[in-house]
């Protein structure tokens, strides 16, 4: 069963480790402008991540004029760009309702591919302690999560 990539924006502290780690694993350099996930920051208040949901019905894929350029991975469920077929028309970026597809400096399209099922952003997203004064223990939650669908409904 494919996992779900999701986020709890209230736990985003704007550290940008996700976008930096993403650019590092994809391009060998730290450059948030090359991240396949981005952090939207308000200068005075909080932050939230912009990320690909790998939708069940991907509007980006529907908008893509080249059939082989946007495909779904049968194992991970990732909706990913096949760069060799991409014509760089930006239709996917325009169609995404979550602003989760970007254009790189060389006009290549930048989109999450779930790192073959082990997203590096999730791995390094810092977990947050929620202190419980009664038990003096902490419940840990990260902003970015890659979980079984049932875990999304933790309620």
């Amino acid at each position: 069963m494919a996992k779900v990539f999701r986020a709890d924006p209230e736990f985003c502290d704007g550290c940008r480790i996700c976008e930096m780690a993403c650019s590092l694993i994809k391009t060998k350099q730290v450059n948030p402008y090359l991240g396949r996930i981005r952090v939207l920051r308000d200068r005075d208040t909080g932050s939230r991540p912009l990320f690909c949901r790998h939708c069940t019905r991907p509007l980006c894929q529907e908008a893509c004029p080249v059939p082989q350029a946007m495909t779904r991975d049968s194992v991970t469920g990732a909706v990913a760009i096949q760069q060799q077929h991409c014509i760089g028309c930006l239709a996917c970026a325009e169609a995404c309702p979550f602003d989760a597809i970007w254009v790189g400096p060389d006009r290549e399209m930048l989109k999450c591919d779930l790192c073959d099922g082990d997203p590096v952003c999730v791995r390094y997203c810092p977990s947050k302690p929620i202190p419980d004064p009664d038990t003096s223990t902490n419940a840990y939650l990260s902003c970015l999560q890659y979980v079984e669908p049932r875990r999304v409904n933790r309620g």
């Binding site: 736990f11 940008r16 930096m20 909080g46």
Partner: peptide
């Protein structure tokens, strides 16, 4: 407290905060 904030990029601790 409104939540955790990192004061600078790359901080896995995020010890700052904001209010309204």
């Amino acid at each position: 407290s409104k939540g955790f904030l990192s004061c600078s990029p790359g901080c896995a601790t995020g010890c700052s905060d904001w209010y309204k």
